[in-house]
Design a protein around this nucleic acid. Sequence first.
DNA 1: ATGGCTTCATAGTGAAGA
Length: 264
Amino acid sequence: MALAAGSALKVATWNVNSLKVRLPHLLDWLASETPDVVALQETKTEDAGFPLQALQQAGWQAVCFGQKTYNGVALVSRVPAEDVTFGIPGFDDEQKRVIAGTFGGVRVIGAYVVNGESLTSDKYQYKLRWLAAFTAYVRESLARWPDLVVVGDYNIAPEDRDTHDPAVWKDCVLVSAPEREAFQGLLALGLHDGMRRFEQPESTFTWWDYRAAGFRRNLGLRIDHILVSNALVGNLTACTVDKGPRKLERPSDHAPVWASFLGS
DNA sequence: ATGGCTTCATAGTGAAGA
């Protein structure tokens, strides 16, 4: 059951790298882009400090799953989310990385995938374990909600063309074979890489290093993704990265990515 | 250049990000 005829949905994802710092950018972006749902990552705030009132005063709803200092995810939406869940069921994880909700029958999972630090780090092993648990969770979600969109900061560049320079990134975290296999494992469940359903300019990225003038020189990675289920992919009408907010003063190092759907 | 820049927690610097 895909989207109802004539109904439209715009779903976005944005690693804001501190919601407190980026709230003005978020409010401006919501006003100009009017998504139905935007999944946020790296909110870096406990739920008690989540700026719910500011969002509500601007006409938005939100659910959040945050913690002090690190991680933290949220779903900001025009209408309230239904059937909201937090984390990966059955996977014990102190880090707040997953939130999900249903909007007009479409299930949206927002995720902040583990970074991993380096291939020799304990955090890399945690990343691979986390991805295995997440994949099982997405499989179960897909069985219950065929109309599924899985968005977020995946911290994986799926192919060499998703890096500004494959030689620089060779054998680094974010591009290693086990990580890329995990990404392909998600697609194999019956999901599509939304941005790749449409022609993108060469060297299209979603993150640029703050250091060494990364954005100006387009030294980036495509690591934020919108994955769309088989049932919904026929309704996907656009999927793109919006580099606008990355050009502002004091930006997040990630740009938002959005996808639009139209019921046929 | 095992760096660069930004954030948080903290009141000096260190951890973490990607």
